[in-house]
């Protein structure tokens, strides 16, 4: 009986952890997307990068490393195009799309399950 109780507790911890992970990734993506949409200056983009880098330890544990590295790379690319509004907006949209994709992948939907 003891093994079953331990197994049940572990299972509940994993389910709770999964729900918390969904919520955390969702909140992080929403916050970064909001900051990025408002970003127009070097300091704004830098603030987004700092926020993203702060989460890097968690994101590297929870997400595929290639996804994390791609977003980091795209954020620095956006910095490069600050002087050109069109290119800057395109770079920002690319990052926003990737963030929304990560958010969607962590949700339980038909597309993610199947």
């Amino acid at each position: 009986m003891r093994k079953e109780i331990v197994a049940l507790i572990l299972l509940l911890i994993m389910v709770g952890g999964a729900i918390w992970n969904c919520s955390h990734i969702n909140n992080m993506s929403v916050e970064l997307t909001f900051m990025l949409k408002k970003a127009n200056t070097y300091e704004d983009v830098e603030a987004v990068i700092n926020k993203w880098v702060q989460e890097e330890r968690y994101t590297h544990m929870a997400l595929r490393h290639s996804e994390v590295d791609t977003i980091t790379s795209d954020l620095y690319t956006a910095l490069e195009f600050l002087d050109n509004k069109e290119e800057f907006d395109a770079a920002k949209n690319r990052v926003i799309w990737r963030l929304e994709r990560i958010q969607a992948m962590e949700q339980i939907r038909w597309g993610t399950v199947f």
């Binding site: 009986m1 093994k3 079953e4 197994a7 049940l8 572990l10 299972l11 994993m14």
Partner: peptide, 11 residues
């Protein structure tokens, strides 16, 4: 998850 599931199922 599989470990816990297997223990619960066999229990």
């Amino acid at each position: 998850f599989l470990l816990c599931g297997e223990i619960l199922i066999s229990g």
